[in-house]
Design a binder for these strands. Structure first.
Lengths: 123, 123
DNA sequence: TCTCTGTTTAGACGAACGTCAAGACAGGCG
DNA sequence: CGCCTGTCTTGACGTTCGTCTAAACAGAGA
């Protein structure tokens, strides 16, 4: 069963809207927390945080799995699993071009997470 | 044994320095990822994300556990456990004043996380 | 078509997580 | 002091996570 009919999609992750006021400004509602927490969770592993950074900072905006995998002391399947986690969290998207698969960051959700964490300059 | 002698403290979470360039600008090194990933992980649970927000947005900059607990359908010990997780991640700090315990956000690390997630205004 | 390389899926394992009930600790008040 | 209230710790339970090996899938090239 594809469990995506849940009525939880309070936030449209595809718009460029800032989505939410900073976490420190207004209390985050349960629905918003349920939607955004998985994204933070996906970033909550050192390997995935590095993968995310390698992808987001790659030249041309995309990184090949063949460049990502050898950067870690982990097997290919394990890296693939972590990439799937990032994909399911909406943080990256994948595209196969011929032999290789390329991953690209999705800046919109990154901006939303950053906005949620924003704090007054010197509060 | 208090396992905090680990030689991993690449980042001083107590300074006000921006600490790291955005994740999308330069590849996050393994040491930095190891230090910051636990903070993201701590925010990766809906309950903790809401707790963090309730604390950070509370009037006076602090929130009493007695106000936090009744906001969820969870037992006191469970909320306490989540607060401990936030504390160990360096996101909040606690202080007991008489009968009640008050939690306060630590804006420095929040700023660091937000800075790491920062993305150019428009791709 | 067959074979080779690159990537993902499936299944299994131990470790860590989220939750609870029960108990321990801290502080205020008779 | 003894009791009560508020908070944290302990120990347990089932679930999820991170990793691996083995196998399946997708494309390129002979």
């Amino acid at each position: 069963m594809s469990n995506q009919a849940a009525p939880l999609t309070v936030i449209d992750l595809n718009t460029d809207a800032p989505c939410c006021p900073p976490l420190a400004q207004r209390r985050v509602p349960a629905g918003t927390a349920a939607v955004l927490a998985p994204a933070f969770k996906a970033l909550g592993d050192p390997v995935r945080l590095q993968l995310m950074s390698m992808i987001a900072s790659a030249e041309g905006g995309e990184a090949c799995v063949c460049d990502l995998t050898p950067a870690f002391d982990l097997t290919g399947p394990t890296i693939s699993h972590h990439l799937k986690t990032l994909r399911e969290a909406g943080l990256v998207e994948a595209e196969r071009r011929g032999t290789w698969v390329y991953y690209r960051a999705r800046p919109v959700i990154l901006r939303q997470l950053a906005a949620l964490l924003a704090v007054e300059p010197s509060g």
